[in-house]
Amino acid sequence: MIDGFKFCPPGLPDRLQQMKFVEHEDIPWAPVNKKIEDCKFAILSTAGISMKGDVPFDMEREYKEPTWGDPTFRVIPKDAKQADLEVNHLHINTRDIEKDFNCAFPLDRFKELEEQGRIGSFAENNYSIMGYLPTPHTGELIKGTAPAIADKMKADGVDAAFMAPV
């Protein structure tokens, strides 16, 4: 059994226990109907990654309004290079992601898996959100951001998605 609180600061486990999350009883399920070798994959990270030149995740507003978090998303093309990206997330240390984004958003590894034929293909468009979203502000994520990401994935013919929070 892993220790899910190993990397939390003292006090955070208690705060998390008291925090309200959007809880559900039901669990959605979409069966995997193809072999992994035939599936087109897209990936998603919560690291607050954006392309330089695109609008960055809004840290200025979060500084002014600490109980708010940017609920929008950014599209990252699979061929993005390290120098093309910036990371904005005030709740993690972004140093390692700024050195090698693959430790949170493994575009390069998925391109290798595509070349090796382990996956069918790797989608042109991949996604980042910014993971700090206090519950009063999850509405825009649920009503706007997440359905928009799902629609874009569908339009791209994505068969399966691999997601990782930070």
């Binding site: 979409a30 799902a150 629609d151 994935m153 994505v158 399966a160 998605a161 691999f162 997601m163």
Partner: peptide
């Protein structure tokens, strides 16, 4: 959850 609900399997 929402991507899965849209019919795309996720992990």
């Amino acid at each position: 959850r929402i991507v899965e609900e849209a019919g795309i399997p996720t992990i």
